[in-house]
Amino acid sequence: MTLAEAVLLTVITASTPLLIAAIGELLAERAGVLNLGVEGMMAVGAACAFAAAVSLDSTLGGFVAGAGAGMALSLVFAFAVLGVAANQVASGLALTILGLGLSGVIGAPFVGARRDPIAHLSLPGLTDLPFIGRPLFGQDPIVYLSFALAAAMAWFLFRTRGGLTLRAIGEDHASAHALGLPVLKARFLAILFGGACAGLAGAYLSLVYTRFWSPGMTGGRGWIALALVVFAAWRPGRALAGAYLFGLATVLQLHAQAGAIRLPSQLLSAMPYLVTILALVILAARDRRSTGAPASLGIPFVPDR
C-alpha cells in the first residue's frame, strides 16, 4: 500500500462521521430548526454505541444503539423548542452540555475496552485493483451508507414533494402554516432524523475511528459538522465535498504531526478550528448577500389560532 493510498483510506474514515452528522443537521436546518446540540448527541451516540457493542458483542447492535441514543436525546430538544417554543440556540447549548455529561456517565465503565475492526466490503477482483480498489470497493458499510444518505438527502430535498414542503416550512413557517402544511410535525421529524444521524456519527467514531471510548472523544466534531452545513450552503452535495475537504485537512495535520514538520503540535491541532473559521469567512465574504440559509432558521414557531 502506497502512502497516498493510506492517506486516502484514513481520509475516508475521518470524513464519514462529519458527513453523516452534517447531513442530519442539514435536514433539521432546512426545516428551520437550528440544533446546536450535535456535539452532545454525537458524544452520547459514541458512548451508547460502544457500551452496547461491548455488552452485546455486536457492532451492528452498537450502531443501532448509537443512532437510537442520538434520537432519544434529540427528543428532549424537540420538546423544548417545539413543545414549549424555547430559544433554539440556548436549548442546543443545553443539549450539548447534557449530552457531554451523559456520555461521560455512560462511557466511564467501558474505558480500556477495545473493539475489533469492523468488516469491510470485499469484492474479489475489484477490491484488489491497484490504488482505487480499496477506497472504492473495500470500505465498511457505514461509508457506503453515508454516501447513500447524502444522495438520498439531495433527492428528497429537491426532487420530492415532501422535500419541497420541508423547505417551504424552513423558509417561511407562517405562510407554510397558512397553507395547511404541518410545520411542527415536519420539524419534529427533522429533529429526530438529525439526532439519529448525529448518534450514528458518534457510533462511527467509537466503533470504527478509534475502536475504544475515551472522555471527550468527539473533540469538537459536532461543532465542525454544524459549520459544514453553513459551508455547504445547506446543500447535501456541497456537504459531501466539505466533509471530505475537512477530513483531508485533519489527516494531513495528523501526518504532519507524525512527520518531521517543526511546528508545535498544538498549532497543528488547532488547524481544524482555524480552517473552519477561515472557510466560513471566505464563504461569507464571497456570498455577501445570500448565504443560502433558510429564512426561518432558528425562529420559534407558535401557530396562531
Binding site: 452532545g40 428532549v76 420538546f79 423544548a80 414549549v84 417554543a85 424555547a86 430559544n87 440556548a90 436549548s91 447549548l93 443545553a94 443539549l95 450539548t96 452540555i97 447534557l98 449530552g99 457531554l100 455529561g101 451523559l102 456520555s103 461521560g104 456517565v105 466511564a108 472522555p215 407558535v302
Partner: peptide
C-alpha cells in the same frame, strides 16, 4: 463521576428555558 454534574447542569438549563417559555405561553 463529575460528568453527573455536567448532565445536571444541562438539564437545569433546559428547565430554565422551558419555564421561561411557559411564563409567556
Amino acid at each position: 463521576p463529575f460528568d453527573v454534574t455536567r448532565a445536571f447542569q444541562g438539564l437545569l438549563l433546559f428547565c430554565v428555558l422551558a419555564a421561561d417559555s411557559l411564563v409567556t405561553y
